[in-house]
Design a protein around this nucleic acid. Structure first.
Length: 562
RNA sequence: GACCAGUUAGCUCAGUUGGCAGAGCAUCUCCCUUUUAAGGAGAGGGUCCUGGGUUCGAGCCCCAGACUGGUCACCA
C-alpha cells in the first residue's frame, strides 16, 4: 500500500507515543459526563467537566493553544495551557505529546473547567487530557469564516464511498439522517397510537410477489431451492389480516434488480400498512393526517421546500379521479371509450404508444405524460384502471376501475393505496390475466402466481384498506434533497477499482529480466516488445518500486534486478 | 442504454500556442500564554484516472476504456 507523506508521519507518531508508554488505542472506559451542547446550554464559569471527541482544529500559540473538540452534538473550544497541564518541571506532556504527537481527527478525552475567553468564546480549560484513539488518515476538514465554508468536502463520489468521513466533516449531512430517523419514529408512533401492530415478514421469499419488478435471486443450499429477495411485503401483510390482526404495518427493506439513478437504489425502504374494515376513502383521510403529523415531527412545520417548490403537508389534500385529471389537462374524456379510441387520442397527443398496450396501460401513459407533473402540492389521484392494479378491489360504481389512489407530491408518487381485493376468485383471475400479459411480453406484469396467498384469501379476508409509502422519497421531500443517495447512509456504488501492484508494462519487463538478472538496456527494451511510451513508463515504474536498478558503465547501460 | 461534463498534492481548485507541475488550506521545522479561516519565517509533498497513438517533446491534441455527476430513456 502506498502511503502519503502525511500518513507516514502519523504512523511515526504512533511509534513515538508507544515509546513514551502511551497506548494510542486504550481499552478502558473514559468517564464522559458532558457533551459540547450541554456545556454551552448549561454554561457555568468554573464548572468541572469531562468530555471526549475528535480534535477538529488545533491552533498552537507557543506555550498555550486552542483546539476545537467535536462530539456527537457539535463542537466546543478547548484551551491547552502548558503550565495548567504540566504543573511540575516536566513540560513534555504539552511540548511533546500535545504539540508534536496529536493530529487533527484524533479522539481525546479531556478533564477541565469552564471559562470564557477575552473574545467571549465559551471554552474548556484543559487540566488533563488523554489520547483515546489516533487517526492515521487526515480528514478532509473544511474551514469556515463568517458563515462561508472553504475547501468543503463536496465530491459526491468520495462522500458516498466514505460516508464516515462525510459525516465527520459535514454537519448538514448528519442532520439529514437525524431527520430520517425522526420520520420513522413519528410514523411508528402515529400507527401505534392508532392501535396498529408492527410486524416483520420474510425478506427471503420463494415467490416474489406484491409488485412487478425484477427480483434479486439467491439460493438456499439445504433446501436446494431458489429464493428471492423481497420486492414488496404486501402479500405477507395481507396473510396477517386473514390471521385476525386489525391493523399491521412494516417498514420493509425492498430489493429490485433494476436501474440506478437519482431516485432509484437497488435496495430501498417502503412502509406498508393494512387496516381491516376500512376502504380507500378512509385511507386518504388517514394518510393526510399521518403526513401532516410526520412533517411537523421532522421539521416543526407542515411546510417544506423542495427545489423551487414550496409544499405544504397540512391536511386535507386535493382529491381528483384519474378521469377528471386527464379531462382537465387534455380535454379528453376517457369515460366509456374503447381501447382503439383511447389509443387514437394518445397518438393525437404525441404520446408514444404501441399495439401491445391495453386500455389501462394507455390511460396510464396519458396520465403520466400530461397530468402527473402538474401536481406539486400533495394530491390524491383516485380510481385507476383495473388492468394496472391486480391486487386492488374493483370500483364499487365502475367495473373498469379500481378503488386505488396514489399521493403525488411535486409530480412524484409517494404513496399508493387500495381497497384491497379480498375476492379469492377474482384475485385468481387477475393473477392469471397478469400471467398472460407477461407471456405476451409485458415486462410490467407479474409472472408468478402465489397459490398460498390465494389459499389464504379463500379462508376469508375482511374488507381491508392498505397503503404503501416510499420512505426514501418522502424523506427527500422533507429534507430538500433531489437525490436518493443523499438520504441513504450507504448508497449502492460500483466497486472501487482495486489498485494493481504492477502495471502490465512493468510485468512484461520483469518477465524478460527475471531470466537474466542483469541485461543490456537496449536489448531488454527490444525483448520486452513495448512501445516507446510503454517502455518508458514501465522502467520508470520499476525503478520507483525499487525492483530494478539502471547502471551506467563504459560498456553501456545495464538494468539489474535488485 | 444514449448524450453532456468532470477526473491534477491529504482537501478545494488553477494550469497560457504542445515546452521544467501551480495556489490556498493541510503536513514538517522554527517563533509566539485568551486565539478563532490566528499570525510570522522556512521546507517537503505528484501514477496529472488507465491504456494506446500523434509529436523532438503531451496535464493539454487524437482513439479506446474506467469511475463519478447531470439530462434523457427504463422503472407500479
Amino acid at each position: 500500500m502506498q502511503l502519503s507523506e502525511q500518513e507516514l508521519v502519523r504512523r511515526q507518531k504512533l511509534d513515538k507515543l508507544r515509546a513514551l508508554g502511551i497506548n494510542p488505542y486504550p481499552a478502558d472506559l473514559f468517564p464522559v459526563n458532558h457533551t459540547s451542547k450541554q456545556i454551552k446550554s448549561d454554561f457555568e464559569e468554573g464548572k468541572q467537566v469531562i468530555i471526549a471527541g475528535r480534535l477538529m482544529a488545533i491552533n498552537i500559540q507557543g506555550k498555550a493553544s486552542f483546539a476545537q473538540l467535536q462530539d456527537s452534538e457539535g463542537r466546543i473550544q478547548v484551551y491547552f495551557n502548558r503550565d495548567e497541564i504540566c504543573e511540575g518541571e516536566d513540560k513534555s506532556l504539552y511540548n511533546d505529546v500535545f504539540k508534536k504527537l496529536l493530529d487533527l481527527g484524533d479522539f481525546v478525552g479531556i478533564e477541565g473547567t469552564l471559562f470564557t475567553t477575552q473574545v467571549g468564546e465559551k471554552t474548556v480549560m484543559v487540566k488533563d487530557f488523554k489520547l483515546l484513539s489516533k487517526a492515521l488518515k487526515p480528514l478532509p476538514i473544511p474551514k469556515q469564516k463568517d458563515g462561508v465554508t472553504y475547501d468543503a468536502f463536496t465530491d459526491p463520489e468520495l462522500r458516498y464511498r466514505q460516508r464516515y468521513a462525510d459525516l465527520v466533516v459535514n454537519p448538514h449531512v448528519k442532520e439529514v439522517f437525524v431527520k430520517r430517523t425522526k420520520l420513522f419514529n413519528a410514523m411508528r408512533q402515529f400507527f401505534n397510537d392508532a392501535g396498529y401492530f408492527e410486524v416483520e415478514t420474510p425478506v427471503l421469499q420463494p415467490i416474489p410477489g406484491g409488485a412487478a419488478a425484477r427480483p434479486f435471486i439467491t439460493h438456499h443450499n439445504s433446501l436446494d431451492i431458489p429464493l428471492y429477495m423481497r420486492i414488496a411485503n404486501e402479500l405477507y401483510l395481507k396473510r396477517l389480516i386473514v390471521g385476525g390482526f386489525d391493523g399491521v404495518y412494516e417498514f420493509s427493506k425492498n430489493f429490485r434488480n433494476e436501474g440506478m439513478d437519482r431516485t432509484h437504489n437497488p435496495e430501498f425502504t417502503a412502509m406498508e400498512i393494512y387496516v381491516s374494515y376500512k376502504d380507500y376513502n378512509w385511507m386518504m383521510d388517514f394518510c393526510e393526517q399521518l403526513l401532516e403529523h410526520c412533517a411537523l415531527a421532522v421539521n416543526g412545520t407542515s411546510e417544506a421546500t423542495f427545489g423551487e417548490h414550496k409544499i405544504n403537508f397540512k391536511a386535507p389534500y386535493k382529491r381528483i379521479t384519474m378521469r377528471d385529471s386527464i379531462l382537465e389537462f387534455t380535454g379528453f374524456d376517457i369515460y366509456n371509450k374503447s381501447e382503439d379510441e383511447i389509443r387514437a387520442a394518445a397518438k393525437a397527443m404525441h404520446i408514444e404508444v404501441d399495439e401491445t398496450m391495453g386500455k389501462g396501460k394507455l390511460i396510464d401513459e396519458i396520465f403520466g405524460e400530461k397530468c402527473e407533473g402538474n401536481y406539486i402540492q400533495p394530491s390524491f389521484i383516485t380510481d385507476y384502471p383495473k388492468e394496472m392494479s391486480p391486487l386492488c378491489k374493483e370500483h364499487r360504481e365502475n367495473p373498469e376501475l379500481t378503488e386505488r389512489f396514489e399521493l403525488m407530491v411535486c409530480g412524484k408518487e409517494i404513496a399508493n393505496a387500495y381497497s384491497e381485493l379480498n375476492d379469492p376468485i377474482d384475485q385468481r383471475e387477475r393473477f392469471e390475466h397478469q400471467l398472460k400479459l407477461a407471456q405476451k411480453g409485458d415486462d410490467e406484469a407479474t409472472e408468478f402466481i402465489d397459490h398460498d396467498f390465494l389459499r389464504a384469501l379463500e379462508y376469508g379476508m375482511p374488507p381491508t384498506s392498505g397503503m404503501g409509502i416510499g420512505m426514501d422519497r418522502l424523506i427527500m421531500f422533507l429534507t430538500n434533497n433531489q437525490s436518493i443517495q443523499e438520504v441513504l447512509f450507504f448508497p449502492q456504488m460500483r466497486p472501487e477499482k482495486k489498485k494493481v501492484d504492477l502495471s502490465d508494462n512493468e510485468k512484461a519487463i520483469l518477465e524478460v529480466l527475471k531470466a537474466e538478472k542483469r541485461m543490456d538496456l537496449v536489448a531488454l527494451k527490444s525483448q520486452s516488445g513495448l512501445s516507446n511510451k510503454g517502455w518508458d513508463k514501465g522502467i520508470k515504474g520499476l525503478g520507483k518500486h525499487g525492483l530494478t536498478k539502471v547502471e551506467k558503465t563504459d560498456d553501456g547501460l545495464f538494468v539489474e534486478l535488485v
